[in-house]
Design a protein around this nucleic acid. Structure first.
Length: 491
RNA sequence: GCACCAGUAGCUCAGCUGGAUAGAGCAACAGCCUUCUAAGCUGUGGGUCACAGGUUCGAGUCCUGUCUGGUGCGCCA
């Protein structure tokens, strides 16, 4: 723990259930998946800091016709050894191959639907394949979540609700809300509303996305008795959530008001939606690797120009393979910081066009800038006691005496955090914290340039400035953590 | 066709719920490393806040309409 909490625990005693990340199984983690993950993770941390009890749910897309496709593809071309060795990459290959083949031969789609029906009916072989696919995918996701420092309390995905859907449908029918339309079971929206009805059972009797979400809602309300339920899901699904929440309201369930869809804009590639199937997709790990090697390069170059006091204007050539494990670990955290921050610095609802140049840019309003400010304070701390003979701990424990005008803008910036955190939670907008961090880091950077903290001749000044800088460090660390970013002590 | 979302500097965006001369970053240009990390700091140029009305003492912010763009619209999830 880093000292006293900087935000009020106004959410004490309340429970938040937050559904985020929720990737579809059998596809590698793409930049498209990152948004829900980073926004959801940041919101989880912000609410938790405000005292809420937070239940993080990864509603895995581990059910549906797509598994019929995978099962079919595996029966046609599958090799166990490759699956075990290549995990998710192999699954994706099969998935793409199947989709291509189905374009030429539509009968394959029927076979896929049949295979999914087998799965739903509990066919042993289909079930076994599904389990293998799911396990392989989950292993891969857990690895990525480890890199991102994201965790979940539950991975109960769509398959988990398979045996709960009938109950949910029955509840809706018993309430007299369901009607039959073109052979399917639907709930009509409000009188006079132009919204299409919510379909809860297909004409062939199969369950729908909406029915599974309703089953999940009933289950979560019973299991967690939440005060708020957030769905961090892309904006294109707005209609779906309006329909589902309307069904809750029509059932007379007062808690429908506690459920909220938190939409966000899509990550586009050259103006188009990313699609694993079409192959125009950027994988998260490729971005992390590129950012990491650039960070390492800079890190090693800095170390070189540090040793040779000569002016090394043109970047010295460095050999990344010489990096220590410790340097690699730092570079990775820095890479992840810049990617997460890039995702969180702007309003949720905006679409973002993916650009290597922008996401890898080390200058300006970036995660790197924030980490740099934090690391520089640690740099001062490492030298302070030897040079001044003063104790950091002692300064930390003492109420600072403020005499310099330059100190005030810093404390003013810091003092905004509680309001920002409350506002960020109320509006479910992590970027509010991101913008506050940039303001604080910018104020600090200016201060840092103009006010040397270590001053051997003036202990009183050293004390005051150290107190200022320690407060900045704590606030930066706290803000970064609210966004799910691990602060670095050294760069 | 209907619904939802958006439109602020060349580009990417803030603008915390109506308050004074609209702010950052990137890009461009000009400066700053013998002193705590230059992944930084300082400065310059750049805006009819899509358009038109309305409410108000006051509108980038609220209302109406128009235009432009994005997304979605029962048997995918």
């Amino acid at each position: 723990m880093s000292g006293t909490p900087l935000v009020d625990d106004c959410g004490r005693g309340r429970t938040l259930v937050i559904d985020f990340s929720s990737p579809n199984i059998a596809k590698p983690f793409s930049m498209g998946h990152l948004r829900s993950t980073s926004i959801g993770n940041a919101l989880s941390r912000i609410y938790a800091a405000l005292g809420w009890k937070v239940v993080r749910i990864n509603h895995l897309g581990d059910w549906g016709t797509q598994f019929g496709k995978l099962i079919c593809a595996f029966r046609l071309w599958g090799e166990r050894e490759r699956l075990e060795k290549e995990d998710i990459a192999y699954l994706m290959e099969l998935y793409i191959r199947f989709n291509d083949a189905a374009k030429a031969d539509p009968a394959l789609d029927d076979a896929a639907r049949a295979a999914f029906k087998e799965l739903e009916d509990g066919g042993a072989e289909a079930r076994e394949l599904w389990q293998v696919f799911r396990d392989a995918s989950l292993r891969e996701f857990e690895r990525i979540y480890g890199i991102l420092d994201v965790s979940f309390d539950s991975f109960a995905g769509e398959s988990f609700y398979n045996d709960k859907v009938d109950g949910a449908v029955r509840t809706i029918m018993d309430a007299g809300l369901a009607s039959t339309s073109e052979g399917a079971l639907v709930v009509e929206m409000d009188e006079g509303s132009k919204e299409p009805p919510c379909m809860i059972r297909k004409s062939d009797g199969a369950t729908t996305y909406a029915a599974r979400d309703l089953a999940a809602l009933f289950y979560r309300q019973k299991e967690y008795a939440f005060d708020r339920l957030l769905y961090v899901v892309g904006a294109p699904q707005s209609l779906h959530f309006r329909q589902v929440f309307t069904v809750l309201r029509k059932l007379g369930l007062a808690w429908h008001e506690r459920c909220q869809h938190i939409p966000f804009g899509q990550v586009l590639l050259e103006g188009e939606m990313m699609s694993t199937r079409r192959g125009n997709v950027i994988f998260l790990e490729d971005v992390i690797k590129e950012a990491e090697s650039r960070a390492l390069e800079k890190m090693l170059a800095n170390a070189v120009s540090d040793d040779e006091s000569g002016s090394e204007d043109s970047a010295p050539s460095v050999d990344i393979s010489q990096a220590t494990d410790e340097q690699r670990a730092r570079a990775r955290i820095l890479a992840v910081s810049s990617i997460i921050f890039f995702d969180l610095k702007n309003g949720r609802i905006k679409d973002v066009d993916f650009s290597w140049d922008e996401i890898l840019n080390p200058h300006g309003e970036t995660g790197i800038y924030l980490q740099y400010a934090h690391a520089r304070i640690h740099g001062i701390m490492r030298k302070f006691e030897d040079r001044t003979g003063l104790s950091i701990d002692e300064i930390r424990r003492t109420t600072p005496v403020i005499t310099e005008d330059a100190s005030w803008p810093i404390f003013d910036a810091i003092s905004l955090l509680p309001d920002k955190a409350a506002y960020a939670a109320e509006n479910n907008e992590p970027p509010v914290i991101a913008r506050w961090l940039l303001d604080l880091a910018s104020a600090f950077s200016t201060y840092y340039r103009a006010n040397k903290v270590i001053n051997e001749d003036n202990p009183a000044l050293s004390r005051e400035r150290m107190a200022v800088v320690l407060s900045v460090r704590e606030a930066l660390a706290q803000g970064l953590q609210l966004l799910g970013i691990r602060p670095l002590d050294r760069m």
